[in-house]
C-alpha cells in the first residue's frame, strides 16, 4: 500500500510537469525517482520501513492518519 502522504501532482510552486509526479505532502515537494519507489512500496521497498519522512511523522504520532491523507489531496 502506498504512503498516505503521497500525492500525484502536475504543479507545485514554480514547478510544472506534463505527467503527474510523486509529491510528498509532508515535505511539500516533488520527490526523487528513487524515493517515489519507496512511497509506492515497489521492489520490496516500504514507506513505513525506509522513509525517514514517514517514520518521523509516525514518531510524532501523525503517521497515516485520515486527516493527513485528506490534506494531501489523496493518492493516485
Amino acid at each position: 500500500m502506498a504512503c498516505p502522504y503521497l500525492a500525484y501532482r502536475t504543479q507545485a510552486g514554480d514547478a510544472q510537469f506534463d505527467e503527474p509526479r510523486a509529491y510528498c505532502t509532508v515535505a511539500d515537494r516533488f520527490v526523487q525517482a528513487m524515493r517515489a519507489d519507496i512511497c509506492n512500496d515497489r521492489y520490496g521497498l516500504a514507506h513505513d520501513e525506509h522513509c525517514e519522512i514517514y517514520l518521523g511523522c509516525a514518531d510524532d504520532g501523525g503517521g497515516g492518519t485520515d486527516q493527513r491523507r485528506d490534506r494531501s489531496g489523496g493518492n493516485p
Binding site: 510537469f17 505527467e19 528513487m34 517515489a36
Partner: peptide
C-alpha cells in the same frame, strides 16, 4: 530508464 512520469 524511466517511466513516463520520471520514476525508475
Amino acid at each position: 530508464a524511466r517511466r513516463p512520469n520520471g520514476e525508475r
